[in-house]
């Protein structure tokens, strides 16, 4: 495509300067700070002056148990939310593409939380998860299933927030699977119906042919999970103690405490983590897609 054969009069209609306004805004407000982060992460930084200190911030980051806990929790959170979203939304999507009369109503109900502000969802669930009087434990007690302290128990807090994240994001995952299933040609379902029942349909038609949707769900929720902040901050603020701190809440806490260099080092670690996990996934995903063409 190096030599475009269309006449000049046509090519002139697609001038390169159309890129310029977007390039300036994106360059100034996204690329410049992102690149500057690599430098500032190696400084002791007060916003007025920055003293170069090499890799000290990174050393400190990896030596401080609270900060490394943030790194570990970020990974747990991303794996848990993306895994659960796939496991729950695939059966839901199958249900909502079946002969249900109420399917469009139910799709709408599941999708609505996606549009509600994360802060509002976080506040609501902190109350619903309240250990003694909250609705969730009231129901669990009525079924004699115990009454865990969802947000107060250090070994449970991160998982509880992740569950709320799944609740809020399930709509997108389900919708992606629904569009995947709806794009499967009807012949396959016909064949599956002749071959055997629902299991054949699930195992040999839906499961392999909605693989692309599954990749998209995993990729999107992984990116979202690694970058999550709002929900954790409104529900636990990283607590109790540092039990549910993730990279973004560590970045915010260090920023509040005035450790700008350290905060930025956390940010760079987040860039690197996101890139090394998501980029190969994306390549893999695109290759799979090409093979199918």
């Amino acid at each position: 495509m190096n030599h475009d054969l269309r006449p000049k009069s046509v090519l002139r209609t697609y001038p390169h300067w159309f890129y310029l306004p977007a390039a300036i805004v994106f360059g100034v407000f996204f690329l410049v700070p992102t690149l500057a982060a690599f430098y500032f992460s190696m400084t002791r930084w007060t916003l007025f002056d920055a003293t170069y200190i090499g890799f000290d911030n990174y050393v400190r980051f990896f030596q401080d148990p609270q900060l490394t806990a943030g790194l570990r929790n970020t990974a747990i959170y991303a794996v848990m939310t993306s895994g659960l979203k796939v496991i729950i939304s695939l059966p839901l999507a199958i249900l909502l593409t079946s002969r249900l009369h109420l399917k469009s109503l139910l799709r709408g109900i599941i999708f609505f939380p996606v549009l509600v502000s994360t802060v509002a969802v976080g506040i609501t669930f902190s109350v619903l998860m309240q250990p003694s009087q909250g609705l969730i434990n009231t129901v669990l007690r009525a079924l004699s299933l115990g009454a865990p302290d969802w947000l107060g128990n250090p070994s449970l807090a991160l998982i509880s927030v992740a569950l709320v994240d799944v609740w809020k994001g399930l709509g997108i995952a389900t919708v992606l699977f629904i569009s995947g299933i709806l794009s499967i040609p009807n012949d396959y379902f016909e064949a599956a119906r002749l071959e055997g029942g629902a299991w054949v349909k699930f195992r040999y038609v839906i499961l392999p042919l909605s693989r692309n949707a599954a990749f998209t769900v995993i990729l999107l929720s992984f990116i979202g999970g690694l970058r999550t902040f709002d929900l954790i901050w409104t529900m636990t603020r990283g607590g109790p103690g540092f039990a549910s701190d993730v990279l973004t809440s560590v970045i915010f806490k260090q920023y509040q405490a005035g450790f700008y260099g350290l905060s930025t080092a956390g940010n760079v670690i987040l860039f690197i983590l996101v890139t090394i996990i998501v980029y190969p996934l994306m390549r893999f995903f695109n290759r799979r897609e090409l093979e199918e063409l």
Partner: peptide
């Protein structure tokens, strides 16, 4: 442009440097 857009989709913003800017 397409690679830059891809990077923009996955890389989280650098907060303190943006405040500084």
């Amino acid at each position: 442009a397409s690679s830059i857009i891809l990077a923009g989709l996955i890389i989280p913003p650098a907060v303190v440097p943006t405040i500084f800017l």
